[in-house]
Design a protein around this nucleic acid. Sequence first.
DNA 1: GCCGTTTGTCAACACTGTTGACAAACGATG
DNA 2: CATCGTTTGTCAACAGTGTTGACAAACGGC
Lengths: 217, 217
Amino acid sequence: MGRPAALSRARIVDGAAALVAEHGAEALTARRLGEALGCDPSALYRHFADMSEVQREVGDHFLGAVKVDVRAGESWDATVRRICVGLRSVQLRQPRLAALVRAAPTRLGNELRITDALLRELLRGGFEPAAAAAAYHALIELTVGAAAIDADLAAEPAAARRRAYRSWRAHYAELDPAEFPSSVTVSAHLYEGSADDRFEFALDTLLAGLAHLSRFT
Amino acid sequence: MGRPAALSRARIVDGAAALVAEHGAEALTARRLGEALGCDPSALYRHFADMSEVQREVGDHFLGAVKVDVRAGESWDATVRRICVGLRSVQLRQPRLAALVRAAPTRLGNELRITDALLRELLRGGFEPAAAAAAYHALIELTVGAAAIDADLAAEPAAARRRAYRSWRAHYAELDPAEFPSSVTVSAHLYEGSADDRFEFALDTLLAGLAHLSRFT
DNA sequence: GCCGTTTGTCAACACTGTTGACAAACGATG
DNA sequence: CATCGTTTGTCAACAGTGTTGACAAACGGC
């Protein structure tokens, strides 16, 4: 019944993911996606309510790269750390898409997988369900949030990133010491090292704080 | 020399801030701003390189609402907490603008004020400059990052927020226990309470972790 | 063979940021 | 006083964006 479907949700998401992988998330527009799929842009609306629905699915598609397997002998906090670092790296690779996934949980396959793995490790680490939920939210806020901050610059080549950090550092160093004394004092260490270093320090510190809340400590 | 300027950076920023305060950040477009100021949209480009420059200045304008004063007898971590909570509340009030300010530090007046106050408290709290910088970055990543996550929903009325949280919680509760056992176990506590509660738990836990790194402990 | 449904096409609408050519209005100069 | 150069705002246009409603093609069931 009805004209045979050349398109499907799966074909559209695949095409969209390929487009994003090759030309970046800003290339994911109705017209470019239609061109890539050999159809009119408006045909997409037969399968998705709007473009943001396509973006959500593509976002979850990329979350598939995050490894959440259990490893024998690995402590709960080491596993949590590994999952958060992996989640961050995926989000940094597709900054614009990450922006769409972070506001609300997509509750699609890959996101559920990651959520369940984090909760699994927290329960294993001696957190009661209520404490595990609180710890989960704290970890996600830091991980996804920090990725949101670092995403734009992460898209630039490493040399440009270092240049930006150096220029910001210099800016703080040259402030008026009377008005911004602490900034001038600390300036040499602001934006020192990589964004990954800074995130991992924050994550380790948060995990240390969380560890004190476990039943096992 | 030259035609007298009816516009100025200050007038444009004021008009833009008023526009944002009344109609939200998505109303900040060249055409609407031109209309509000009674000039052609293209006149803005005589004073700003592009619209993102206007947005940065408006973003910093709103940061003026964050109180960073010192209070006699308040511990360093209590002050840091207060500043972070204040910063978050401003960012939640103007979610779209916050998105533009977070990728790179604007290094404009109000942002510098907040940065200096946080560093001041960390130095007072017994952190060496390098440690203070690391702690500052961790606090900013959590605060600004979490705001990025919560911003969209924060724009909705409280009833809609609670409805969204309840619906997500229900979704986790109804997952297949064989595939997502931990999610089902914890589901009753996911997205429990307000986003502010969750943020403040994360902030307190991070601050507890940081406190162990101070010279004074 | 017709009918209804599904599905893709096409043209249009209402937006967006941005640019280049033009004109008005001023201060300084001859 | 007239002229010149500079500054500043206006206008029209370009190249995009998401989205919608009318239309036509292609199929399964009757």
